[in-house]
Structures are given as C-alpha cells and as structure tokens.
Amino acid sequence: MTNDALSDSLARVRQRLARALESAGRPAGDARMLAVSKTQPAAAIRHAHRLDQRHFGESYLQEALDKQAELDDLDDIVWHFVGPLQSNKTRAVAERFAWVHSVDRLKVARRLSEQRPDALPPLNICLQVNISREASKSGVMPEALGELARAVAALPGLSLRGLMAIPAPAETFDAQRRPLAELRTCLDDLKRTLDAPLDTLSMGMSGDLEAAVAEGATLVRLGTAVFGSR
C-alpha cells in the first residue's frame, strides 16, 4: 500500500469509528483504534505514526522485535501483543510490549509477571475469552474466567485491564452484537468482584467495528481496514 493510500484508509477508518461512537450515543474518543500491523513493513507503521496513530498490534514475536528495532527512534509508540503467546516466548513480550491481549492461562501470566522488568510500569493485560466456545479458538471459557481473573489480578508487575475476544463471524449486525454483549457482561461481573482497573474491552475488527462499539468496545483492533488485504 502506498503512503497516500494508507493516509486515505486511515482517515476513512477514523471517520467510521467516529460515526459508530455517535450512533451508539458515546462520546467522541471513547474508543481507541489499535492498528494491527502484523505482516506490515516498518515503513507503513512509520507513516501511520506520522498521521498520529500511536497504538500498534503485533502477533508474530520475531517480526515484531525486528520492527521495534527499526522504529526505535519513535519512543511514543505503544506496542500491543495480540497473538497467541507461548510460554517460552514470554520474556521478550514482557520486556518489549506495553499490552498483551491474549492471556488465557495462568502459567503465561505468571511468566509475564516474573519477567516484567522492575524499571517498567506494570504490563497491561487483557484476558482472552473464548466467547463463541469454538474448539479452534484460544481463550478461557466464560465459566472459568472469574478464577483466572482473580489469580492474574494478584500478580505483581501486571495490571489486569480487561477482556479480549474474537467471536465467530456473523452476517448480521444483531448476530455480531450477541457475543460482544456477553463479553461486556463478563467484564461487568468482574468489576463487581475484583479490585482491578477493569476499563478495557478489546473487541471489534474490520468486519464488526460498529457492533463492537455499540456494545462498549474501548479498543478496536483494525488491520485490513487500515493497511489493506495482506
């Protein structure tokens, strides 16, 4: 994608997000765009940064580390790890990222806690919930969420911020909303029982942004809509 095309697509996505917030009766800026930049070159991230995009999501660790090294001069980028995380790769994530959206096991959370450098602020954590109960998807089942959340909230070096989900695809707006509403209910339930800064719903992608915003998303993860097809 050329720089001009990226500029245009970023502007369109920002307008789309603003319209979705307005339609949902939510304040402007109440949801933030996370530009999912996996498989995109560092040059595309640099151009998006020039256009005031600051939050970027990566899924492949070595690719992300290479891009972080190339973009080291941009010290205000906020890096989010959004892909599946194996326990043997947690150290680099704990050292180099500000957010992890894909925690679904206590073993991984403990390793992130132990490996987060003391000089850095707490690592922001979203627990991934398998809200559609798909055998092929990662994520903790909703009925096991409370136990995992209590354990993660107690770990040093981590800040449990909220929940993430990747629901099964749905064709209609109402069908898209149903699992997202369930995720919002899960977060509301946790807020009543946990002493943690639970302020984040990481949900919504290029195909269901409007439904996610209608159900209270605070971070929408947009890849194709920003950078085009991979």
Rank of each mutant, 00 (worst) to 15 (best):
V93S: 10
V93M: 08
V93G: 15
V93L: 13
A94H: 10
E95L: 01
E95V: 14
E95M: 05
E95P: 11
E95R: 13
R96T: 13
R96Q: 15
R96I: 08
F97W: 11
F97Q: 12
F97K: 02
F97Y: 12
F97H: 15
A98Q: 15
W99D: 14
W99F: 15
W99G: 12
V100L: 12
H101N: 15
S102L: 03
S102F: 04
S102I: 01
V103K: 04
V103T: 11
D104Y: 12
D104Q: 00
D104L: 00
R105S: 11
R105T: 10
L106Q: 10
K107R: 07
K107E: 13
V108C: 07
V108R: 02
A109G: 11
A109H: 05
A109F: 07
R110P: 02
R110Y: 04
R111T: 13
R111P: 11
L112M: 10
L112A: 13
L112I: 09
L112E: 06
S113A: 13
S113L: 13
S113C: 06
E114P: 02
E114R: 02
Q115G: 00
R116G: 10
R116M: 04
P117V: 04
P117F: 11
D118N: 07
D118P: 04
D118A: 12
L120Q: 07
L120I: 02
P121L: 04
P121I: 07
P121A: 06
P121Q: 07
P121Y: 02
P122Y: 12
P122C: 06
L123V: 05
L123A: 08
L123C: 07
L123F: 13
N124W: 12
N124Q: 15
C126K: 03
C126Q: 11
L127Y: 00
L127K: 00
L127G: 05
L127S: 03
Q128P: 01
Q128C: 05
Q128T: 05
V129W: 00
V129Y: 00
N130F: 05
N130W: 01
N130L: 06
S132Q: 03
S132V: 06
S132F: 02
S132H: 06
S132G: 04
R133C: 03
R133T: 02
R133E: 05
R133W: 01
E134W: 01
E134P: 05
A135T: 08
S136Q: 09
S136H: 09
K137S: 11
K137D: 14
S138F: 13
S138T: 13
G139H: 05
V140S: 03
M141V: 08
M141D: 09
P142T: 09
P142V: 11
E143A: 11
E143G: 02
E143Q: 10
E143V: 06
E143S: 07
E143W: 01
A144M: 09
G146M: 09
G146N: 07
G146H: 07
E147P: 01
E147S: 03
L148F: 03
A149Q: 08
R150I: 02
R150N: 06
A151S: 10
A151L: 13
V152T: 14
A153L: 03
A154Q: 13
A154E: 14
